[in-house]
Lab assay of single mutants.
Amino acid sequence: MEVRTIKVFTTVDNINLHTQVVDMSMTYGQQFGPTYLDGADVTKIKPHNSHEGKTFYVLPNDDTLRVEAFEYYHTTDPSFLGRYMSALNHTKKWKYPQVNGLTSIKWADNNCYLATALLTLQQIELKFNPPALQDAYYRARAGEAANFCALILAYCNKTVGELGDVRETMSYLFQHANLDSCKRVLNVVCKTCGQQQTTLKGVEAVMYMGTLSYEQFKKGVQIPCTCGKQATKYLVQQESPFVMMSAPPAQYELKHGTFTCASEYTGNYQCGHYKHITSKETLYCIDGALLTKSSEYKGPITDVFYKENSYTTTIK
């Protein structure tokens, strides 16, 4: 009895394709271990004539594949690729409408935090270190965002349907971005203890939790000093293409032309909904596939993004 075979390709990165001759009487799992086709788990399936010449994702289970996976995804987590594939199996079914010149995501599976993050990423200057993220990001900007969303979920250790947080998501993504040249110098002034300067680099240099107003941050924000008295913390120097200011959701007025974009969060910790506000020729609110415009805006804002380049204080 002759062994019926077909020729397929296996890959971990969709760049390096490895030619395989597979036995049609055995499952993919018996031949390769966990195997995925377009995100779908085909591990328990036997090869079919229609699979001839198709590319299958496999887990990096030998040295060659491990090197290829690390170079593309910059992670050695053995569960990463499987999590990416199972997320992709959902995100490829989502709709990605162009809204006001940006790629958004039609609401499904509690994905409003991903839509808000995706919209924000198209408006701030950011370059990702893992080629996987950078490639998928370019495709997302062009309207094909399924891979990018699935990668975000995998890097953030999230599953489809789980509630997510924009600030946490951005923080994970910033860790995989090139923020080497970003720098922030802060000064804390206390009447009792004097003053202390701190220099922050990388992710810490672009994120701040405690106030939404970048102007206020430049002037000074009140913080408790270690001595128990009130101290003032203010920005001395900022070198970065953008800054992200966050605070627990509270009524906040966004003035046209003073910011790049913002995240609105309605609801409580267990259950809520994100919308995205962007400042173009007027203010726009993007909620999944829905767009509304207004000249002014007041609502429960939790993150505001500002364009920056270089700032030095005039406070002496």
Rank of each mutant, 00 (worst) to 15 (best):
281 E>T: 07
287 D>Y: 00
271 C>F: 15
143 G>W: 02
102 L>G: 06
227 C>R: 00
200 L>I: 09
10 T>K: 10
132 A>H: 00
310 S>Y: 13
182 C>N: 03
98 Q>F: 15
145 A>W: 02
59 L>H: 12
185 V>C: 02
279 S>W: 04
306 Y>G: 04
51 H>N: 05
259 F>E: 01
252 Y>G: 02
241 P>G: 00
253 E>I: 11
296 E>Q: 12
76 T>R: 10
183 K>E: 03
125 E>R: 06
134 Q>F: 03
97 P>F: 06
269 Y>T: 15
275 K>M: 09
286 I>T: 03
224 P>F: 10
14 N>F: 15
233 K>T: 09
61 N>D: 13
239 E>D: 09
312 T>R: 15
270 Q>I: 15
239 E>K: 10
250 A>V: 13
99 V>R: 06
39 G>Q: 09
229 K>Q: 14
85 M>P: 13
18 H>L: 05
277 I>M: 11
299 G>L: 04
36 Y>I: 04
276 H>Q: 02
112 C>Q: 05
228 G>L: 02
58 V>C: 09
281 E>F: 01
186 L>S: 08
84 Y>K: 06
143 G>Q: 02
32 F>M: 14
47 P>F: 05
256 H>V: 13
170 M>H: 01
310 S>Q: 14
259 F>K: 03
253 E>R: 08
100 N>C: 15
133 L>A: 05
204 E>W: 03
203 V>G: 06
139 R>D: 11
121 L>I: 10
139 R>H: 13
58 V>G: 08
237 Q>A: 11
215 E>G: 06
265 Y>A: 00
173 L>W: 00
92 K>V: 07
229 K>S: 15
110 N>M: 08
62 D>V: 07
122 Q>P: 04
201 K>M: 11
273 H>K: 00
23 D>Q: 13
262 A>T: 00
270 Q>K: 12
28 Y>F: 15
87 A>P: 07
97 P>M: 15
311 Y>A: 06
115 A>Q: 12
77 D>E: 15
37 L>E: 13
265 Y>L: 01
40 A>K: 12
185 V>D: 01
254 L>I: 02
145 A>R: 04
50 S>E: 15
216 Q>W: 02
288 G>S: 04
8 V>T: 07
111 N>C: 09
171 S>K: 15
285 C>L: 10
247 A>R: 09
180 D>Q: 12
202 G>A: 03
206 V>G: 00
231 A>C: 06
272 G>H: 06
8 V>K: 05
47 P>V: 08
219 K>I: 09
144 E>R: 08
88 L>V: 09
178 N>T: 03
212 L>P: 00
208 Y>V: 14
110 N>E: 04
221 V>F: 11
131 P>H: 03
90 H>P: 04
120 T>Y: 05
235 L>N: 02
112 C>P: 07
238 Q>D: 02
267 G>F: 14
250 A>L: 06
141 R>G: 05
309 N>M: 09
298 K>I: 15
217 F>I: 14
88 L>K: 01
24 M>P: 14
201 K>W: 14
11 T>Q: 07
241 P>C: 03
6 I>D: 07
266 T>Q: 10
41 D>M: 09
83 R>Q: 08
196 Q>I: 09
44 K>R: 14
240 S>V: 02
64 T>C: 13
311 Y>P: 13
204 E>A: 14
193 C>R: 04
123 Q>Y: 05
51 H>V: 03
115 A>G: 09
271 C>W: 15
11 T>P: 05
225 C>D: 01
294 S>D: 01
22 V>P: 09
274 Y>K: 04
158 K>Q: 02
94 W>A: 07
254 L>E: 02
5 T>L: 11
99 V>D: 00
29 G>T: 08
201 K>Q: 13
145 A>F: 00
132 A>Y: 03
69 A>L: 11
30 Q>A: 09
145 A>Y: 01
216 Q>C: 09
198 T>D: 06
102 L>P: 00
102 L>Y: 08
113 Y>E: 03
194 G>H: 02
112 C>Y: 01
124 I>H: 04
282 T>I: 06
57 Y>A: 05
147 N>V: 07
